[in-house]
């Protein structure tokens, strides 16, 4: 029997305790261990960003993270952003702006952008494009994704003009 390590994670608000091989990728743990198949695997070497999830609020490549590294962490996958009847503000702007086509890269983009919106003022389109450059999309040519981010940024600024948290780095 291969060596296994016990881990505790909270995924989308649900606590899980599992024994996993140390080599198991977080992406495979989520997809095959927890059946959260909304997290997609595009390259398994950290370039395409399709597998990006939020670990303790930070966007992380699930294909470059071992499940054991997520021990005691809180993880949010695409399934935790909102369902078809109650989408998050960002999911809605993606739909309105036609920010997706095949939808394979989309969960990773949503995780990256949630993190971006929380951390940075996103003052210009150029800055947004730079921050999006770690996620690859082969269908949309990015324009409508950028528009969705701009719309989400503006909506957020209107909704919480005072409390907006901007992490200065």
């Amino acid at each position: 029997m291969p060596f296994k390590k016990r881990i505790r994670v909270t995924v989308n608000g649900v606590r899980h305790e599992r024994s996993v091989e140390p080599r198991l990728l977080l992406s495979d743990f989520l997809r095959h261990g927890l059946n959260l198949t909304g997290t997609h695997v595009g390259c398994e070497h950290g370039i395409c960003g399709a597998c990006t999830v939020l670990v303790d609020g930070r966007s992380v490549r699930a294909c470059l993270t071992l499940a054991v590294q997520a021990d005691n962490a809180g993880i949010r996958t695409i399934e935790g952003h909102g369902n078809a009847q109650s989408m998050s503000a960002l999911q809605k702007t993606f739909k309105r702006c036609h920010g997706l086509q095949c939808g394979f890269c989309t969960p990773g983009f949503l995780a990256t952008i949630e993190d971006m919106l929380n951390k940075y003022p996103l003052e210009s389109e150029g800055r947004i494009r730079e921050l999006l450059s770690g996620n690859l999309c082969r269908c949309t040519g990015y324009q409508n994704i950028v528009d969705a981010v701009l719309m989400a940024r503006d909506e957020r600024a209107q909704a919480e003009p005072v409390n907006r948290q901007v992490e200065k780095e």
């Binding site: 198949t37 996958t77 399934e79 952003h81 939808g103 969960p107 949503l110």
Partner: peptide, 18 residues
């Protein structure tokens, strides 16, 4: 707006590996 988006935006897509 696209009818596909509801599932694809919420992790409800059904790709073969899913």
């Amino acid at each position: 707006e696209r009818r596909e988006d509801g599932r694809l935006l919420t992790g409800g897509g059904r790709f073969v590996d899913d």
